[in-house]
Write a protein that binds this DNA or RNA. Structure first.
Lengths: 128, 128
DNA sequence: TTGACAAACTACGACTGTCGTAGTACGATA
DNA sequence: TATCGTACTACGACAGTCGTAGTTTGTCAA
């Protein structure tokens, strides 16, 4: 069973779980279990969202008006599931988070060594 | 005074403040106020670390053995300041966080639209 | 001398998102 | 009959951030 989310910091993920979920829902409405599996497959098993994290994200985002829920029967059997669809506000929020991400990523990157972004050469940092 | 940290999510930063601080200390020992200014200047005013966040990071990291503190007089006047230097463990931790960052960044990136990484073309996502 | 302001902190408590643990309920399979 | 996968809900702990506030020292100006 190896380790879960080896190398993925839940501190960075914090707050971006919502974004991941919205990314899935942006394509089509879905429900908990499926979203969980899709996140796992998109990340190539590198990130597995915890059930509690997932469902607490649902209630938070529904409260904020980013998603809407509705009951529907699954396609395999007639079992009821809670589906979620993204709202306009959710879409706007998602786009905002995308911009924020690019910005935040750039900032953090400046404090990271060994990346392909920067070419380290001595200490040519004359800021301050 | 505009807004502080406009567009930077403190959720993503969470946990990476330590990394930023260690990045500074990796170059040379320093103290709170100066580190704060350096983070600000390196990020080109895009990120301003809160004082409380900074100092709580110090005590956490010292407890973990990532940094060591010592008292020294400032260069301007004879005022005492608490300087911090990075330890071997701190250096190892920093490098670990750098690797973790590259990994995490890659994962999150897959859920982000509008980046220069991906070329959006219709909906050619045949995963699952 | 008084006041304001920057430097250099410390203390405390609220908040929020994550996560561990646990439990429920249904259907399918063995 | 039991186990497994699906599809959740509830609760409480934890950790890092941040708001608020207070302290002390030194500098500069009125």
């Amino acid at each position: 069973m190896a380790e879960m989310n080896a190398g993925i910091s839940s501190d960075v993920i914090r707050g971006y779980n919502d974004t991941m979920i919205l990314y899935i829902l942006k394509q089509e409405p879905s429900y908990g279990y499926e979203i969980s599996k899709r996140i796992r497959s998109i990340s190539e098993d590198k990130y597995i969202i915890k059930e509690t994290t997932l469902y607490s994200a649902f209630s938070r985002m529904e409260k904020n008006g980013y998603i809407e829920s509705y009951e529907a029967a699954g396609d395999v059997n007639g079992k009821k599931r809670t589906y979620y669809r993204i709202s306009e506000a959710g879409l706007a929020y998602y786009r905002e988070k995308c911009n924020e991400w690019e910005l935040t990523k750039d900032v953090i990157q400046r404090f990271i060594d060994g990346s392909s972004y920067l070419t380290m050469k001595g200490d040519t940092n004359g800021n301050d």
